[in-house]
Design a protein around this nucleic acid. Structure first.
Length: 504
RNA sequence: AGCGGGGUGGGGCAGCCUGGAGUGCCCGUCGGGCUCAUAACCCGAAGGUCGUAGGUUCAAAUCCUACCCCCGCUACCA
């Protein structure tokens, strides 16, 4: 009997995506990873809340809409529909989709910033920077080359009134917080980067924009728009219905926040400080994953190496795509998308390992021609190995070692393949049918476990596996992660191949 | 420039924090086995002075120092 420690609730988020163009591999990757965790904890019976959404304020949105000659509203509506449909195709099981233009979100941010103001964390001062009249934006030193902005316009050093947040006041608090919560900054390799940054001293943060009109107004001074990051970060709070809703009481704080490394600092420096300022609990884990390159190079249209998610889904199916991105990159590291690797992964892991296992075992089972199905049998030694794998996979989920989770599931499948080889059931079928029945039962139940373990990853195929085992996959009782008698007396149904080999 | 990460058999990666025989995984190559299965599955082998040079230690891929090469970050870019 195995025991997994299961969190009562699990609140997981992706960033809200800021889109002035199309979704790319990175967005899909973050969201698939989050979905995989959400599905796993749901499977265990945790009360899961999985949030994603879109960030819809800011100057770039304003400009992008203008360029397309569209109203901001209809520009955003297009993006929203686009994102939702891709998430649907990728089988993303989010519980809520937030848009920062939602009234509820705007109200929340307004409320929050008033609290900060009342606490004395916001003051009025002067912002100095290089201003570009054409872009209507301030730039920092590093953006400026020969007194030109990145777009090539002339810039001028300007000074204007602005509101600031007292970041500096919280510097010591933050360092102390990192110290007391060693699992907050994940993976470990990012820890020092952030700590050093904070130790070098935090300047107060300008949280108002005069030149940006598309955003939330500062409630105490309507001439200004709130800095988009302050706006955006609080989506995680407003999505739950802060402050009085049942959801907020039930799910806050966030258990696991996922993001690309480029926005890690915002989530690990500003964000906890903002929360402290308004006396809210700080999330448990901020996890930055790496970036994808393609064919060993940075993705770009001129190289012609851009990975279009939709193409892969259309050609090879969602499961293959989800599997590849979860398996290929070492979670937290950068990784490279190689088409040839993609094909190899599908052919060796999905087709030859799992697909073939299911195929050979169901074939053997059917050859026995047993209408009434197979009796429960437990091979103690082998089952022990299977149960240890279940526990290992669980602990890997807990420690957020996702790539290892995936590879261990396939190791389990390899172990089952080896069991077939060692027991030679095709011989037993002729010489010892009692033993044959036992071996097959062990294999059927192991395959059931593998299918359940795969359910957060291969969101379609796992159902096909259970169907072939004669098991109702919609009945949650059949999805136990332990060696059980669920497979006993089930009629095996020979189905099509789970995955087709890709020729190349 | 500063800070951080990386350099491991032909390719792609783990391992390094908490030293213990180059350990492991996937692909590829070679040999064998099996015939239930999607030319799939199982076993075995070849192949690495673990970026370079020093140091600590009985013992270093792992700890320390210097250097070389690659890549990130350096804040209000949302």
């Amino acid at each position: 009997m195995i025991k997994l420690d299961i969190p009562k609730k699990f609140y997981i988020t992706t960033p809200i995506y800021y889109l002035n163009g199309k979704l790319h591999l990175g967005h899909a990757y973050t969201t698939i990873v989050a979905d995989c965790f959400a599905r796993y904890y749901r499977l265990l019976g945790s009360d899961v809340f999985f949030l994603t959404g879109t960030d819809e304020h800011g100057l770039k949105i304003q400009h992008a809409a203008l360029e397309k000659n569209m109203s901001i509203e209809s520009f955003l509506e297009d993006i929203y529909i686009n994102v939702k449909s891709l998430w649907k195709e990728l089988n993303i099981s989010y519980d809520y989709f937030i848009r920062t233009t939602d009234k509820n979100h705007i109200d929340t941010v307004t409320k929050i910033i008033n609290i900060m103001k009342n606490k004395g964390d916001i003051y009025k001062g002067f912002y100095e920077g290089y201003y570009c009249k054409s872009c209507e934006a301030f730039y920092t030193d590093k953006d400026i080359i020969n007194n030109k902005c990145p777009e090539g316009h002339d810039v001028f050093l300007e000074k204007e009134e602005a509101y600031f947040f007292k970041l500096n006041k919280y510097q010591d608090f933050l360092l102390d917080f990192y110290n007391k919560n060693p699992s907050f900054l994940k993976p470990d390799k990012r820890k020092n980067e952030i700590i050093n940054f904070v130790k070098n001293g935090l300047d107060d943060l300008c949280i108002s924009r005069k030149n940006v009109t598309w955003g939330i107004k500062l409630p105490f001074d309507n001439n200004f728009t709130i800095y988009v990051w302050l706006d955006a970060l609080f989506n995680y709070v407003s999505a739950l219905g802060y402050p009085d809703s049942d959801n907020f009481k039930k799910y806050w704080p966030v258990d696991f926040q996922l993001m690309g490394k480029e926005i890690y600092r915002f989530h690990t420096v500003y964000w906890p400080i903002f929360l402290k300022s308004v006396d809210l609990e700080i999330p448990k884990i901020e996890f930055a994953h790496g970036w994808w390159t393609s064919e060993g190079k940075k993705m770009s249209k001129s190289f012609g190496n851009v990975v279009y998610v939709q193409d892969y889904i259309d050609k090879y199916g969602v499961d293959a795509f989800r599997y590849y991105v979860l398996r290929e990159i070492s979670f937290g590291e950068d990784g490279s998308f190689y088409k040839s690797n993609f094909i190899d992964r599908i052919n060796t892991d999905l087709v030859a390992n799992i697909g073939n296992l299911v195929s050979r075992v169901t074939s053997l089972a059917i050859k026995r021609n047993k209408e009434e199905g197979f009796e429960f049998y437990k091979d103690e030694i082998f089952v022990k190995i299977v149960e240890q794998k279940i526990e290992l996979i669980h602990s890997l989920y807990q420690s957020k070692e996702l790539t290892k989770v995936v590879s261990e599931i396939f190791t389990l499948s390899s172990i089952a393949n080896k069991y077939v080889q060692d027991k030679e059931p095709w011989v037993l079928l002729k010489e010892n049918v009692d033993e044959f029945d036992k071996v097959i039962y062990v294999l059927l139940e192991t395959i059931r476990i593998i299918a359940v373990e795969l359910s957060p990853i291969l969101t379609n195929s796992w159902k096909k596996i259970l169907y072939q085992l004669g098991i109702d996959f919609e009945n949650k009782a059949n999805l136990k992660l332990e060696f059980t008698n669920i497979c006993s007396k089930k009629k095996i149904i020979k189905g099509n191949h789970l995955f087709e080999k890709i020729d190349n």
